[in-house]
Design a protein around this nucleic acid. Structure first.
Length: 130
DNA sequence: AATCTGACTGTTG
DNA sequence: CCAACAGCCAGAT
């Protein structure tokens, strides 16, 4: 299963470091894990991963698109909105401002937060079987 | 070792 | 903005 390779472990480690209210794209995670073009592989790893507590919902697709969430995208959207992010049906608005970079984790960079207002208060309470 | 799959992405139309 | 395509990658068969 996924999660055994060094790459997969690095991916999960990085995901776990994404702060609340911040997001990262699959491509970002792939790059930080050492494989800039492995965004797709990252998606596969997150889908297979079964680590309680890991903020998988903070990993979105490029351009702020929501990406997937094991068939439970509505929940992913709700979780992000709950963290103060403005989210539409398919994307995170102003995600660039909420985009997290590991560089600021090592340094004491400014704690800037998303310059967006959580005007959305979707209802998102359904699901689907997997 | 070969082939298929998909929580991706950038380019085209 | 959306759909179709074509690269790209690690995992599973």
């Amino acid at each position: 299963m996924a999660g055994d390779s060094a790459f997969a472990r690095r991916v999960l480690l990085i995901v776990g470091r994404i702060p609340t209210g911040r997001v990262a794209t699959y491509g970002d995670v792939a790059a930080w894990a050492g494989r800039p073009r492995a965004a797709r592989a990252v998606g596969n790893i997150l889908r297979e991963a079964r680590v309680p507590g890991l903020p998988y919902h903070r990993v979105i697709a490029a351009c702020g698109a929501l990406g997937g969430y094991g068939g439970q995208v509505p929940m992913k959207r709700a979780l992000l909105a709950a963290e103060g992010l403005a989210v539409t049906a398919r994307r995170v608005l102003g995600f660039e401002a909420a985009r997290w970079r590991p560089k600021e984790a090592g340094t004491k960079s400014h704690p800037k937060r998303a310059a967006v207002r959580p005007t959305t208060e979707l209802t998102a309470r359904h699901h689907r079987k997997s």
